[in-house]
Structures are given as structure tokens and as C-alpha cells.
């Protein structure tokens, strides 16, 4: 299920600007904990962004995307009240999807 994302979508002059902060450790699999044991890898590999029902962005990520990943993009169209949906899948197969309303 993961933890909720923070999404901001603002429409201006016919373009919707989307800013997303995900909540994910993005563990590389090579970091050690205080006891010296390896912390297993756990990072987001795929991200999908939709405006209403249409996929507008698809991403593949590796382990060097920063912890609590940030994503910013702009898409033509979109008006107040429209929905932006962001989904991710990580290396454990966990997924998370959050939706925000365009302002």
C-alpha cells in the first residue's frame, strides 16, 4: 500500500503543472543499518501519471532517485476539477496510487 503522496496540480493558461512528493525510502540494497546488516533493496521502478483517464507520463526509475521522490511535469489541457492520478510500483511489488483535483 505504501504511504500517501502529496500532489499539487494547478491549471494556468491551458497548462496543468503537477508536482508530486512520494513517500518511499528508495533503499539501494547496499546500505547497512546500525548493526552492520544490509538493508534490503526497496525502490520504486515504475511511475505512471494520468490526467483524468489518459496516461500522460510513464517513468522507469533506478535506485539513485532520491528518497521520498519528487516529480514535476506539465501537461497541456486540464481544468479545475479534473483529476490527476499518480501510481507507482516498487521492487517488492508494492503499489500505491493517489489522486488530486486540479486547481
Amino acid at each position: 500500500m505504501g504511504n500517501p503522496m502529496k500532489i499539487r496540480a494547478v491549471s494556468k493558461d491551458g497548462v496543468t503543472e503537477v508536482k508530486v512528493l512520494m513517500n518511499h525510502p528508495m533503499e539501494t540494497g547496499l546500505r547497512k543499518d546500525a548493526a552492520g546488516a544490509l538493508i534490503p533493496a526497496l525502490f520504486i521502478t515504475e511511475v505512471t501519471a494520468k490526467l483524468n483517464d489518459k496516461v500522460v507520463l510513464q517513468a522507469q526509475w533506478g535506485q539513485s532517485v532520491a528518497k521520498n521522490p519528487y516529480l514535476g511535469f506539465k501537461v497541456k489541457g486540464g481544468k479545475p476539477g479534473d483529476k490527476v492520478t499518480i501510481s507507482w510500483v516498487d521492487t517488492s511489488g508494492d503499489t500505491r496510487s493517489d489522486q488530486a483535483t486540479v486547481n
Partner: peptide, 18 residues
């Protein structure tokens, strides 16, 4: 990171890397 952008998406992407 690799981003495939749709026809309505502007070619302008921001993210944060290690």
C-alpha cells in the same frame, strides 16, 4: 530515471537524484 512523455505532456521534467 527515464520518462516517456505523452503527446500533451510538455518536454519538461523535474526530479531529484542521489
Amino acid at each position: 530515471a527515464q520518462f516517456d512523455i505523452g503527446p500533451d505532456t510538455l518536454p519538461q521534467i523535474s526530479t531529484r537524484v542521489k
